[in-house]
Nucleic acid binder design. Structure first.
Lengths: 247, 247
DNA sequence: CAGTGGTCTAGACCACCGG
DNA sequence: CGGTGGTCTAGACCACTGT
C-alpha cells in the first residue's frame, strides 16, 4: 500500500515530489537492486501526472545514480552506492556528518593578507583590491585532527568576518551565505599527493614524511564570481575521497 | 551568418544536433563568457524545433558546464573550463591524449590468479569462479613512466586476453569492448595518498618515499555487471586529478 | 510591464527488446 | 507482437528579473 500522492497545490514541483517519493522507495528497499520499477506509463497513471513529468523525475534519479534505464526493457534499481564525498560540493562540516563523524575546528589564524599574482588571477581580483581574507583552520573528526585548510576569500574591505562568527557558525560556506548572500554554485579541484612538512606533521599529529592528500579548490558563487581559493591537506591514513562516475 | 540547421531527416536526435551546434559556438567563442545566448523562444524559431527540444539541448550544455541559467534573466556562457580528467571515465590512453601527451605502456605481467575474498565480493564472482585475469602495466606519457596499473578482470576461463592483443590495441577498455562487448558504464573510485615502496619507486623512477596518488576503481559494464577492479599508482610530481563540480 | 527561464499537459510516433 | 524507453510537438501558465 502507498497513499503517497503528488499534490498539485504544493509549492514543490510535481517532478520533484515524485523524485522524492521514488527515491525513498529505493532507499527503503521497496524494490531490490536490478529489479524493474513500474513503467513510465504506469507511473503516469498511478500519480496522475504527464509522462514528461514522470521522465523528468526519472532523469534526476538516473543522474543521481539511483536508477538506470535500458531501452526496450525498462527502468531498474541501481546497486546501492557508496556515499560519495565529492561531487555534491559539500562543506567539510556536512561531509563529516554524512560520514558519521562529529566535525570540529580550531581557527589557527584569520586576517587580511596581500594577494599573490597567482591568487589575483584565480580570484579575478580588480586592480584596486589590495587584500584578501586568509583563514587557516585545523579540522577534526571525532576529536582527531585530519585536515589543514587554508582559505583565501575575495571579500571587499567592508566585508569582514570575525573569529566569533566563524566559531559560532562552524561552516564557512554557511557563514558566507548568511552574511553576504554568497552561495557556492561550482568549483574546480585539483587533487595531488604530498608528504607532510614539519609544521603540517606537528599540526596533524603524524610523522614528518607521511603522505597527505592535497586538494586545491576554486569556488564560484551563483553569480559566477570567484569567491574562494582553498588549499586542503588531509591525513591520508584517515581520509580518502570517493567518487562515482557515469558515462 | 549561420546556415547550420537542425536536419529532421538525420538519425541523430534534433536536441543532440542543436547541442552540437551550440557547443561549437561556445567553444569557438562566438559568444564571450557571461554573455547571454538567444532566449529559448528565439532558438525555437531560429532552428524550427519545439521549446522542449531547445530545453533538452540546453540542459545538456548546462550539465556539461558550457552554459548556466538564471531565472528571469537568461542563459549565459560559462567561463572556460579546465580539462577535467575524471568524471567522463576516460581510459588512460584517452586521458593522456586529451592532456596532450603520447601514451605508451609496458605490460609487466598478464595471467590468471586466484581471487581474494575481498576481490570475490567486489567483483561479485560466482562461487565456481576460480580465477581472474591480472594485468600489471607500467604507463608512460611522452616516454616517462607516470603510473603503475594493476587490473583484475572478471572474465570466464573461456574469455582470454593475450599480450599481443593488448599491445596492439593499447587501451584495455577498448579491447574488452571489441572482444567481449563489455562497455564501461559506471565506476566507483577512492583516492588516497601513499608513499612509494622500493618496487614502486624503481618502476616509476622516483626516490623511495616519494608521494603517489593511489586510486582504486571498480567498474561496471552497461549490463551492470562488475567487470574490473583496478589499482592505479600515479607519480604525484607528474600527474594530478582535476574535477569540476556543480551544485 | 515585457521578457526570461521553470513547470506541465496530452498527445504522437519511433526504436528496441523479449517472448 | 505488445510493451518498454526515446524523441518531439504546440501549446499553456507560473515565477522571477530588470526597467
Amino acid at each position: 500500500m502507498d497513499n503517497i500522492r503528488v499534490d498539485p497545490y504544493e509549492s514543490v514541483p510535481k517532478y520533484h515530489q515524485l523524485y522524492t517519493i521514488l527515491r525513498r522507495r529505493v532507499e527503503e528497499k521497496h524494490w531490490s537492486p536490478h529489479e524493474a520499477i513500474p513503467s513510465e506509463r504506469d507511473l503516469e497513471i498511478q500519480y496522475d501526472v504527464s509522462r514528461t513529468t514522470v521522465r523528468k523525475a526519472l532523469d534526476m534519479l538516473v543522474s543521481d545514480g539511483f536508477l538506470y534505464r535500458a531501452h526496450g526493457r525498462g527502468t531498474f534499481v541501481a546497486r546501492p552506492k557508496l556515499r560519495q564525498s565529492l561531487q555534491l560540493l559539500a562543506s567539510f562540516t556536512d561531509d563529516m556528518r554524512m560520514r558519521g563523524f562529529k566535525p570540529d575546528q580550531k581557527i589557527l589564524s584569520l586576517g587580511r593578507v596581500e594577494p599573490s599574482a597567482h591568487m589575483r588571477q584565480r580570484l579575478e581580483l580588480p586592480a584596486e583590491a589590495s587584500s584578501v581574507i586568509r583563514v587557516e583552520r585545523l579540522r577534526y573528526a571525532d576529536g582527531d585532527p585530519i585536515a589543514l585548510h587554508t582559505a583565501y576569500l575575495a571579500l571587499t574591505p567592508e566585508q569582514e568576518i570575525t573569529r566569533a562568527e566563524l566559531t559560532a557558525q562552524g561552516s564557512l560556506y554557511q557563514l558566507l551565505e548568511q552574511k553576504f548572500n554568497l552561495i557556492v554554485a561550482e568549483a574546480d579541484q585539483t587533487i595531488d599527493a604530498i608528504v607532510a612538512s614539519e609544521r603540517e606533521a606537528a599540526l596533524l599529529q603524524v610523522p614528518v614524511g607521511n603522505p597527505l592528500l592535497f586538494v586545491v579548490r576554486t569556488t564560484w558563487s551563483h553569480r559566477r564570481r570567484p569567491m574562494e581559493l582553498v588549499e586542503m591537506r588531509y591525513r591520508a591514513d584517515s581520509y580518502s575521497l570517493t567518487i562515482h562516475m557515469t558515462r
